[in-house]
């Protein structure tokens, strides 16, 4: 299944590094898919912190990063009630709505299920992804 999200036109910098975009092109709340690897890599700006995960759902291999981004609901044992947390950090796969934390690549429901994460940083105003 092809990735429907427009793929950002970045540039390969070295065998291990890839320039995804200019920093200002990835403001908080946005995501771009870098054409790295077989499926692409989703690079997220969550409240100013950058994360990158493989655009590949650990479930059926759906295009994980082309779905919607949310927070999630977790039970708070101390308060004894559900809380809405991790706002902007949860990618939901467009196929089966699995929730993946973009900071860790781990499924919220089942920590044994995870997708690959990548190091990403800002250098000289550019977003640089390490494969």
């Amino acid at each position: 299944m092809q990735v429907r999200q427009p793929i950002n036109k970045g540039a390969r910098r070295s065998a291990r590094e890839y320039v995804v975009c200019r920093q200002e092109d990835l403001p908080p709340g946005r995501m771009v898919i870098a054409p790295v690897g077989k499926f692409g890599v989703g690079v997220y700006n969550v409240h100013g912190i950058l994360y990158a995960i493989n655009n590949y759902c650990p479930h059926m291999g759906g295009p994980l990063c082309s779905g919607n981004v949310y927070g999630t609901n977790l039970w708070d044992d101390v308060r004894g009630r559900a809380e809405h947390v991790l706002d902007g950090r949860i990618a939901r796969c467009p196929w089966h709505a699995w929730e993946i934390d973009v900071a860790t690549g781990v499924s919220v429901a089942d920590a044994r299920k995870r997708t690959r994460t990548y190091d990403v940083r800002v250098e000289n105003g550019e977003v640089v992804l390490t494969r």
């Binding site: 295009p63 779905g67 919607n68 467009p94 196929w95 709505a97």
Partner: peptide, 14 residues
């Protein structure tokens, strides 16, 4: 409601 029913009431998101 199915997941994300508010954004995608009739099908998977893609």
């Amino acid at each position: 409601d199915q997941p994300e029913a508010n954004k995608a009431p009739t099908g998977k998101v893609d």
